[in-house]
Write a protein that binds this DNA or RNA. Sequence first.
DNA 1: TTTGTCAGGTTGTCAGACAAGTTACCCACC
DNA 2: GGTGGGTAACTTGTCTGACAACCTGACAAA
Lengths: 232, 232
Amino acid sequence: MLSQIARPARLSDEVSRALEQRIRSAEYRPGSQLPTEKQLSVAFGVSRAVVREAVARLKAEGYVETRQGAGAYVAVRPGLSSFKLIAGNGQAGDDIRHIFELRTAVETTAAGLAAARHTPEDLKAMRRELDRMSGAIRTAADGTDADDAFHRTVAAASHNPYIRRFVEFLGHHFSDSRRPTWSEAGRAAGKPHAAQAEHERLYAAIARGSVRAARAAAIAHLSNSAKRLGIK
Amino acid sequence: MLSQIARPARLSDEVSRALEQRIRSAEYRPGSQLPTEKQLSVAFGVSRAVVREAVARLKAEGYVETRQGAGAYVAVRPGLSSFKLIAGNGQAGDDIRHIFELRTAVETTAAGLAAARHTPEDLKAMRRELDRMSGAIRTAADGTDADDAFHRTVAAASHNPYIRRFVEFLGHHFSDSRRPTWSEAGRAAGKPHAAQAEHERLYAAIARGSVRAARAAAIAHLSNSAKRLGIK
DNA sequence: TTTGTCAGGTTGTCAGACAAGTTACCCACC
DNA sequence: GGTGGGTAACTTGTCTGACAACCTGACAAA
C-alpha cells in the first residue's frame, strides 16, 4: 500500500487559503479594504484570473464582499454565514467527544420533539429502518446505512426543518464513526444487538408520545454509542 | 423612505445559482459529470471566465469537484460540507420558532456544560457582561451587544469549541431578534429587567456548579425570550 | 495480454482589453 | 468661502484568445 503522493495544490486554492488566514488572524480587519486584484496578483506572482477565483471562493464563504468599482472588503462578520465542523485548527484528541456532545444536544431535542409531533407516517418510516437493521443483524451485513437513516427519520419527525437539516449535516460526518459498531469485530462483541435494543426503546418512547422517555432513550443511546466507539 | 433599487445581479451569481438549483433538483445527479465549461458558457451565453467563477463558488460550497483534464463532477454529498440557516426556500412563518428550538437545544447543553466545567475566568467574563447590561438598563441604553456577549461567554465556558462556535453562529442571526427587548417599547414594558433577572439566575446556577439548575435557567430564559418576542 | 504512444478533449493559468461603477479632486459658479 | 458639477483615475466585472497541465480512450507494438 503506497501513500498518496502529494498533488500540488491549485494556485487559486493556495491564494484563497492565504487570504483566508490573513482575515482570520485579523491582519485584514473586518470592514477594511483588501488590496486590489492587481496588487494581489503581483504580490502572489499569479495572474489576475487566479486572484479572482480565490476571491470568488472567499465571497462564497462569506469572508469577503466586493463592490464593482469600489474594491473588495473584508466582511463585517467574516465566515459566519455558514457553519463548518472542521475549523482547520482542530486536533483529533477531544474532537470526537466534543462533536458527540453537540450531536447529543440536538438529537435529544429532536427525539423529544418527535415524541410530541410525530405522525403515523413518521412512525412507519422509523419502523422501516429498524427492520432493515434487524435484517442486517440476521444476515451479518452492514447496517450502517439503516442506522444513519433511522436517526434521520427521528430528526424528520421533529417537524423542525432546521433540526432535521442539522442532524443530517452532523450525520454525514459520522458515517465513518458508526462503522465500528457494524464491523466484524463489532458484530463479534454484540454491538449491533445492543444498539438495536436502544433504537427500539427510543422508537417505543416516541410512538407512545412520551417526551421525557424519548429524551432519556436518546441520551442513553448516544452515550452508549460513544462508549462503543471507545470515547470517554 | 425609498425602496431599494434592484441592482442587476452579477452574471457569475446567476450562473452559480442556476447550477446550484439544477444540482439540488437532482437534474445533475451526484457523481455525474457537469457539462464542460465551454458548453456551459455557450448555453448561458457568457464567457468562460464567468462560468469558471460560478463553478469556483460551487466548489467552495461543496457542490462540485473538479479534476484538471477530466472535468467537473457533482459532489457525492452535495452541499453538506457546511451548514447554512437560510436554505433558500424558507418562509418566515414558523421559521423563528424553529430556529429558537434549535437554539434552545444547544444553549441549554452549553449552560449545563458551563456549570460543570467553568473556570474563574469564565465567571469573570460572564460577570462583566452582566454588569454591562445592568449599566445599559440604568442609563436606558441599548444592551443588545452585552446580551449577545453574555450568551457567548456562557457558550465559551462549556469548553467545547463546536458548541461555542455554533452558539456564536446562531447568535449572529439573532441580533435583530434581540433588539425588541432593548427597544423603547421593550424598556417601557420592563423587558430588559426581566431578561436580566433570568441572566442572573443562569449565572448563579453556573457559578455554583449545578448542571440541572443551569439547564433549567437556560430553558426558562430562552422560552421567556421567545414570549417577549411574541413567538408561540 | 500487456505496454507504449498518441490524439483529442478538459480544466488551470496567463495576458490584454474594454465595460461598468466608484471615488476623489479640481474648478467654475454662486 | 461654500457649493455643485464634471472629470480623471482607479477598481471590479466581463470578454477573448492562447497555451500549459492533465485525463481518457483508442490504437499499435511487443
